[in-house]
Amino acid sequence: MRAVRPRRRKLDPGWYAKSAAAHQKRQRKQAEERAARRTPPAGDVTIISADGTIRVEPALVGRHLRAVVKERPPISAKLRHDVLGRDGYSCRYCGYDGPVLEIEHVVPIAKGGATNLSNLVAACGPCNRKKGTAVWKPNPLPRRRRRASPLRS
């Protein structure tokens, strides 16, 4: 008969072998060095406010700058689903009804377009790339036929 194997000891979460911990430390240090090489030295920036006061502050760089720059929020899953359902899961420009469609702004955000249902359409990749920041008029939606009401007797 086979001998019973001893249970392996449980390790604390976050525990690493000495070599793994040293490896992580080296990785972290190398990443910081790479980031330091990528980040250009920044000088001072002169800020003139609306009331005419002038002040000089150090320029923001790297992660500090990214924290200030406002990024556009992504299109919500509900809005994406509503747009695809409205457009019948097909491209509004060419009619392609393949599995991969993109949600596209009719009036691009770069030209002041909003992210709302009336400014979004479903588009295939080639149409979306070809359009770029131009304003195209999408094909009209097909008219929905009313269901015939059941005959009453």
Score class of each variant (00 low, 15 high):
Arg8Val: 10
Ile54Gly: 00
Ala122Asn: 01
Gln24Ser: 10
Ile48Lys: 13
Lys29Gln: 15
Pro140Lys: 00
His64Phe: 11
Thr115Asn: 03
Arg7Val: 14
Gly43Asp: 09
Ser19Val: 13
Val106Lys: 03
Arg26Gln: 13
Lys70Ser: 11
Val56Ser: 05
Gly85Asn: 13
Arg144His: 07
Val83Asp: 00
Val69His: 07
Arg92Leu: 07
Arg34Cys: 10
Pro150Lys: 09
Asn128Pro: 03
Arg152Thr: 11
Gln24Tyr: 15
Glu102Ser: 12
Val4Ile: 13
Val69Thr: 11
Pro99Gly: 04
Lys130Met: 05
Ala77Leu: 12
Asp82Ser: 10
Ala123His: 06
Arg147Trp: 06
Lys25Ala: 15
Arg86Gly: 11
Arg8Ser: 13
Ile109Asp: 02
Arg146Met: 07
Arg147Gln: 07
Cys124Gln: 02
Ile47Trp: 07
Ala59Gln: 05
Asp97Ser: 14
Ile48Tyr: 12
Thr115Phe: 06
Val4Glu: 04
Glu32Tyr: 07
His23Pro: 03
Gln30Arg: 13
Trp15Met: 08
Ala59Asn: 02
Arg143Trp: 06
Tyr89Cys: 11
Glu32Trp: 07
Asn139His: 12
Cys91Ala: 04
Arg26Tyr: 06
Gly43His: 07
Val69Met: 14
Glu104Ala: 03
Gly88Lys: 00
Arg72Gln: 11
Arg143Asn: 10
Leu60Thr: 00
Leu65Lys: 14
Pro13His: 14
Arg37Glu: 14
Asn128Arg: 00
Leu141Asn: 01
Glu102Leu: 08
Lys18Tyr: 14
Asn119Trp: 08
Pro13Tyr: 12
Ala3Cys: 12
Val61Lys: 09
Leu60Asn: 00
His105Gly: 08
Trp15Val: 03
Cys127Pro: 08
Cys94Val: 09
Ile48His: 13
Asn119Phe: 11
Val69Asp: 03
Arg37His: 13
Lys29Val: 14
Ala148Leu: 00
Gly98Ser: 04
His105Ala: 02
Gly62Val: 07
Thr39Arg: 15
Ile47Pro: 03
Ile103Gly: 02
Pro58Asn: 04
Arg38His: 08
Leu60Lys: 08
Ala22Phe: 14
Ala31Thr: 10
Arg37Ile: 15
Pro41Glu: 09
Thr46Ala: 10
Lys111Gly: 00
Pro126Asp: 00
Thr39Asn: 09
Pro99Ser: 10
Arg37Leu: 15
Pro74Asp: 04
Val45Met: 06
Leu65Asn: 01
Arg38Tyr: 11
Tyr89Phe: 15
Val100Glu: 09
Thr133Arg: 02
Gly95Gln: 06
Ala134Pro: 04
Val68Thr: 07
Ala134Met: 13
Pro13Gln: 09
Cys124Asn: 04
Ser19Arg: 14
Ile75Ser: 02
Ala35Phe: 11
Pro138Arg: 04
Lys25Ile: 09
Arg28Ser: 15
Tyr16His: 13
Val100Ser: 12
Arg7Glu: 13
Val68Asn: 01
Leu84Val: 01
Val56His: 06
Leu101Ile: 03
Gly132His: 01
Ser19Leu: 09
Asp87Ala: 05
Pro150Trp: 07
Ser49Met: 06
Ser153Leu: 08
Ile48Trp: 10
Pro41Phe: 08
Val83Gln: 00
Arg7Thr: 12
Ala134Tyr: 12
Lys111Trp: 08
Gly125Ala: 13
His64Asn: 11
Leu151Ser: 01
Ala17Met: 07
